[in-house]
């Protein structure tokens, strides 16, 4: 984390700072100097970095060069929008991906399964941004079914603004969420299929069949339960990927989340925001990994047993 912060800090330091685009053309040398001092950019690099570290240890990631507000606050302000988008995408991936994957896994030789599998290759081959552009062209501009960009009306839910509870919000959410979900949908589908293909031939399924357990129950209880472990693990880890990849989707659909903030901050060389974003994302990943570990042990009793033994 320290290394990352140093890399980014020094990298952005080397490229430059936003002073020249923040002051008006007519400002003279004196005003320019004031602006540089105002941002603390007149100090040598090591002092700037040590100041940053000292503050970071107290939970202060610095003020944005552009907005002059705490960088952390700016990011947290935008976080609900990104999380809403990522969670929706995750939900779509699960709700569509698992049934399709099970279908393909149960009947691996059928024509429909082949179509599903080839489709899934498209799912992770298509570059997200291109699909986003094409979706926008088709559904927003040509057919006018869905709004093209932005986030719809939001409702306050336990202190957080959410948009999925309003019709307008849902219609704005649909395209970006599907766009972001595509890759993971293909992933879930393929994982599920692979899992099903393996589980189907295992003894306990044969026993269950022999015992006369209903087909429906076999599929929903026995098979599903057994393929959940890899799916949950990968999805848990992929959730971080979704949050990161929302950078692309947010850029295409002008979704006001933290990914878009990152891209804009990169464009403006707003160093405190860039560093703060990466710090938060890093923390986020640590938390996700912990949660996945916990979930994993709940789903798979063997892991618990092993830990007890060791």
């Amino acid at each position: 984390m320290l290394f990352m912060s140093f890399l980014v800090f020094s990298g952005v330091y080397v490229i430059g700072d936003p002073v020249d685009i923040l002051i008006s053309d007519e400002a003279d040398a004196e005003d320019r100097q004031r602006a540089i001092e105002g941002l603390g950019l007149d100090k040598p690099f090591h002092i700037q970095y040590l100041t940053f570290l000292g503050r970071a240890l107290q939970g202060d990631l610095g003020d944005s060069f552009i907005f002059e507000e705490p960088a952390l606050g700016l990011i947290l302000e935008r976080m609900p929008a990104t999380l809403e988008l990522a969670l929706s995408a995750l939900l779509i991936a699960i709700v569509i991906g698992i049934p399709l994957g099970m279908w393909a896994g149960m009947r691996p030789e059928s024509k429909s399964a082949r179509v599903i599998m080839t489709g899934s290759i498209l799912g992770f081959s298509l570059p997200t941004f291109w699909v986003g552009i094409m979706m926008m062209m088709l559904f927003a501009v040509q057919l006018r079914w869905l709004p093209s960009t932005g986030r719809g009306d939001t409702v306050d839910l336990l202190g957080i603004d959410v948009s999925f509870l309003t019709l307008d919000g849902l219609s704005h959410l649909a395209m970006p969420a599907i766009n972001l979900a595509l890759f993971n949908l293909a992933l879930v589908l393929r994982l599920t299929r692979a899992g099903v293909k393996e589980v189907v031939h295992q003894d306990f399924i044969k026993f269950a069949r022999a015992k006369g357990v209903g087909r429906r129950r076999i599929v929903l209880v026995h098979i599903l339960k057994n393929i959940m472990i890899p799916v949950v693990t990968v999805l848990g880890l992929e959730f971080g990927g979704l949050v990161a990849f929302s950078i692309v989707t947010e850029t295409v659909f002008a979704w006001p989340g933290m990914g878009k903030l990152l891209i804009e901050s990169i464009g403006l060389l707003d160093r405190p925001v860039i560093v703060a974003y990466l710090t938060i994302i890093l923390l986020f990943f640590v938390i996700i990994n912990l949660v996945v570990d916990v979930l994993y042990s709940i789903l798979d009793p063997r892991v618990r047993l092993q830990e007890v033994k060791s």
């Binding site: 552009i133 926008m136 062209m137 927003a140 501009v141 006018r144 709004p147 093209s148 960009t149 932005g150 850029t251 295409v252 659909f253 002008a254 006001p256 804009e264």
Partner: peptide, 18 residues
């Protein structure tokens, strides 16, 4: 005032009536 940075997206928003 809706902030729409991307040029094609801004035009799309107008055409879509947003």
């Amino acid at each position: 005032f809706k902030v729409i940075k991307s040029d094609p997206a801004r035009t799309a928003a107008l055409l879509a009536g947003d």
